[in-house]
Simulated assay, not measured.
Amino acid sequence: MGQQLLGNFNAFKDPNAPQYITTKSLKAMAGRPLTGNAASDQNIRLARELARRPELVKAMDRNSITGGLDGLIDRQKIGMIIQSDNPYKYLDDQQLAGEMLKKFDGLQDAHAPGHIKIERLKTLAGWPLTGNPAWDGLIHVAREVSKRSDLLRKMDNLASQDSDGWIRKQALRLLSH
């Protein structure tokens, strides 16, 4: 679907933001009646299918620096989603915090139980995949969290001193509910 959207990018562009497809322009396309024109109908059907997959739209909408949703989808964001093999790319922040909580034992600092050091998380995000599912799961979650600076900041500041460089288990519990 991402490849189709990228291939027909111009048909979905928002006239008020011509460099982007917006979530608003996708909804508008999905709300159109079928026309009998094969190309137009294909775009309408694609928009309707995307409306049934909000996690995919959110993944394409996610700001590549902050991880926030800005309603603007450009060609680069679509390309990044198509090329990414990270299984966590479709998760929202709440779900991602839940995944970190599930993997907490593998992420926590050996010298500070109950805490994840952000520096270690970023280091782990830079590791190549190993082929070991347990390690690769940790690497993938670290990569996705590290891409979302807004979420990482929340994790760092919730249930602890602001900007101390640590994520506490309690913060993940709060964010995942």
Rank of each mutant, 00 (worst) to 15 (best):
N10S: 14
A11P: 02
F12L: 03
F12P: 07
K13R: 15
K13L: 02
K13V: 09
P15G: 01
P18K: 09
P18N: 07
Q19T: 10
Y20R: 05
T22H: 13
T23N: 15
S25R: 02
L26I: 14
M29H: 05
M29F: 07
A30C: 08
A30L: 10
G31C: 04
P33H: 07
T35F: 11
T35S: 15
G36F: 14
G36K: 08
N37Q: 12
A38F: 00
A38R: 14
S40R: 07
S40N: 06
D41Q: 02
Q42H: 13
N43A: 02
R45K: 13
L46H: 01
R48D: 01
R48N: 02
A51M: 06
R53G: 01
R53Q: 04
E55Q: 09
L56Y: 11
V57G: 10
K58E: 12
K58L: 08
A59T: 13
M60R: 04
N63P: 15
S64D: 09
S64C: 04
T66A: 12
L69W: 13
L72C: 11
I73L: 13
D74E: 08
Q76M: 07
K77M: 10
I78F: 07
I78H: 04
G79K: 12
G79C: 02
G79A: 02
S84K: 08
Y88D: 05
K89T: 07
K89D: 12
K89L: 12
L91G: 00
D92V: 01
D92I: 00
Q95C: 03
Q95G: 02
L96I: 05
L96K: 05
A97S: 15
G98N: 03
E99P: 09
L101N: 13
L101T: 13
F104H: 07
F104K: 10
G106L: 06
Q108T: 04
D109I: 07
A110V: 14
A110H: 14
H111N: 15
A112R: 14
A112M: 11
A112F: 09
P113G: 05
I116M: 11
I116Y: 11
E119V: 04
R120P: 00
G126T: 04
W127N: 07
P128A: 04
T130Y: 03
T130E: 05
P133S: 03
P133Q: 08
D136M: 10
D136R: 05
H140F: 09
V141N: 03
R143A: 00
